[in-house]
Simulated assay, not measured.
Amino acid sequence: MTDGAEHGAEQENPASLRVVVVDDHPIFRFGLRAALDSGEGMRVVGEAGDAQAIEELVAAACPDVVVMDLHLPGVPGCEAVRRLAAAFPGLPVLMLTMSQDDGSLLAALRAGARGYLVKGAGRDAVLNAVRTTAAGGVVFGAEVAGRVTSLLLGEGAGQPRRMPAPGPLATLTEREREVLDLLARGADNRRIARTLCLADKTVRNHVSNIFGKLAVEHRAQAVALARDAGWGEGEECRRT
């Protein structure tokens, strides 16, 4: 992890909007930092390639906004957002990611992200998003803005139907229902982990718990029960 704080520049312009960047691709991070530093009244005061020690980085850099990738090695971006929300209430986090699927978007919103842009957004769009989130606003890129309302109403992909769960399905926790719904859509463990911002091991544990509660021995049986209950409908997940 690299702390890129620049105290001398900060003293020259103490009113600068302070930004921390977290992304595991060095070239993209370099370009993003250059774009942000070129913005009027804006300066990157810290950066990292993962979110393993995100609380320490934020405590040292004292940013006004954190710009973070969704899929990071070790600690997923959504988990990092939850940690920041607990340690630094009110600190805005802007997700800047390649993921455009509804599951990733909803997971980021649930974690507490203040904005969601898809990588490839123009420089001005990124600068405006950082300024808006720092001012207390919420920002969504044009690629996902039209889906936000339906997602918040529970109509997004990757979410189990809001109907009474029959039989053994009623014993599942909310997270286990999300995992099972994605299983019923054809997602493998890796895809589920990416969609829900979970570690691969956590997904395996959820799948094992689901099998135990449903008294099944393999995925096909669990998926059959879910689909009989009306779960897993809609767009299928592609294995990536």
Results as ranks from 00 to 15, higher is better:
V207F: 02
R227N: 09
A113L: 01
G49C: 08
A59V: 12
K201A: 15
G137I: 02
G167V: 06
V216F: 08
D102I: 03
W231T: 15
V130P: 00
I210C: 02
F30I: 02
G74H: 08
E47A: 14
H206T: 11
G167P: 02
R185D: 03
V20T: 04
F30W: 08
I210K: 08
V118M: 04
S104F: 04
F28I: 15
L198T: 07
T133H: 04
Y116T: 11
A113H: 02
N189I: 06
S104V: 08
V58D: 03
A48W: 09
R162A: 15
G146C: 05
I210D: 01
D124E: 15
R191K: 01
L182D: 07
C78M: 12
Q221S: 08
A157C: 11
V93H: 05
R219M: 12
K213E: 00
V144F: 07
G8P: 00
L57H: 09
E56S: 14
G77Y: 06
R194C: 05
R33I: 12
L152A: 02
V45Y: 11
M98V: 15
E174K: 13
V138T: 13
A60Q: 13
P63W: 08
P63L: 10
F140Q: 02
G156V: 11
G146D: 13
A113E: 01
G120Q: 09
V223L: 03
R185A: 06
P168L: 09
L198Q: 08
E217W: 01
R238Q: 12
V144I: 14
P168D: 01
S38V: 07
D24R: 10
A220I: 07
A193V: 11
D101P: 00
S104C: 15
T171N: 02
L225P: 07
T149N: 12
A61S: 15
T202K: 11
P160Q: 09
V65F: 06
Q11N: 03
A226G: 07
T149L: 14
